[in-house]
Design a protein around this nucleic acid. Structure first.
Lengths: 227, 227
DNA sequence: GCAAAAGTGTTCTCTGTACACCCATGT
DNA sequence: ACATGGGTGTACAGAGAACACTTTTGC
């Protein structure tokens, strides 16, 4: 490991009979579609709980860091790599066998995500407010990720990762409402987004139905920023 | 691990030739003493960087969870177990060898901590604003812990773990100032502590010098609370 | 002309901040 | 009596919340 100073954990490790553990990553991938927050689930292809839904995850590959493994899983399932991805929490013993699972959470724009079409485990978006019972405490992991996402929405620009380059303020508001699970006031919402310089108008407009066209906006920064 | 659903990470693990990693915990233990924030460092007893200061840590014992290992390390070094301890972040490859280190941070009341007197690695409090260069990126880990502590101070009662059962508001203010590294207004500080019901007066007073005795206060809850 | 969503300001409340003096005690 | 830290209130500014009507388009 690192930073050891304790006699029990001398450095370098000796790779002998010391107990080692399975180390895996787990990725909670959120998207907002049709005004609802969804999470990506896959079907387990192995026992136990074969065929039940669960979060995507897997063991670390040789020489791979946790971050690399999380990026790889996100890419495997959605085909995107450059979006918001952050370490969430490292769980221990979710499986009752003492293994270690570093959970990450990611946000992807549904229009950019191409779900893997592997027959083996069928990834699918499921609305977070209507999830089946999931094995290995995955429900708790998702709840935790959702809380973190709600908290970050208040003081950061994380939503950049859930929308295309250009979008209307109404679209952005619907994303916020889906994540927070409560309605927002249109005027106050717009005022805040603009006064915090989270978004800026592009000058273009988009006509979306038989009503007045909307101004298009873009995020001031398309990378994680804390306000 | 847990929550696997991916073919590459079937469940149960097979304990065969799959690559495994050293898994360790690392504990950033803070205290406030003499108006300064200190962190506990120990001297490495093994190569590399033998005899240089670093954070306490060690490999997981067989059958032990991450939390249990962190509690054990905290107890080993300070003799206390019932104080604030929270997972911070899981670092990978701090040592350049791909090992995994789950960092925790803890807060202890200096009047309760009894530093381990083992000659082997000599734990000692070091002021965080005057640290030597530390191996394995320990400086970065400490900075990260400090940021988290500063953030939590604003909206939680974490400081409960840094003071005895009863204390004066001036003591509490000095603790906050040491952590935030800037002075606070006495009246505003007291107003906030009371209006948020973080602390309540015990009715007792303490005479501490040739000046007016101070009211003693206690935390409303001596466990982690978010306001 | 009507249905549908876009767009826009003001008022009020609350929170945080700045700021200065008297009080109780020990020596 | 004086030095020392304990203890207190008010005024202002900024942020967030409540709230309703006009505009522009497609049909």
């Amino acid at each position: 490991m690192a930073a050891l100073s304790h006699p029990q954990g001398p450095h370098p490790p000796t790779h002998d009979s010391r107990p080692q553990r399975d180390t895996a990553v787990l990725v909670v991938i959120f998207t907002v579609d049709d005004g609802r927050l969804h999470v990506l689930l896959v079907r387990r292809s192995a026992q136990p709980f074969k065929d039940s839904w669960s979060l995507p995850g897997g063991l670390l590959a040789p020489g791979e860091s946790l971050d690399q493994a999380a990026v790889r899983k996100l890419d495997d399932e959605t085909g995107v790599t450059d979006l918001f991805l952050e370490q969430l929490y490292t769980f221990c013993d979710l499986d009752g066998r003492g293994s270690i699972a570093a959970a990450y959470f990611a946000l992807v724009d549904p229009s950019r995500a191409h779900l893997a079409q592997r027959r083996a485990w069928l990834p699918a978006w499921r609305p977070v407010d209507d999830l089946p019972d999931l094995p290995f405490d995955n429900g708790r992991v998702i709840d935790y990720a959702r809380q973190r996402l709600q908290a970050k929405l208040e003081y950061s620009n994380v939503a950049y990762s859930l929308l295309p380059q250009e979008f209307t303020l109404s679209q952005l508001q619907r994303v916020h409402e889906a994540i927070l699970a409560h309605p927002l006031d249109k005027r106050n919402f717009r005022k805040r987004m603009l006064s915090l310089s989270i978004v800026e108008p592009t000058g273009r407009t988009a006509t979306e139905g038989r009503h007045r066209p909307a101004q298009l906006y873009a995020f001031h920064e398309r990378k994680p920023i804390i306000f």
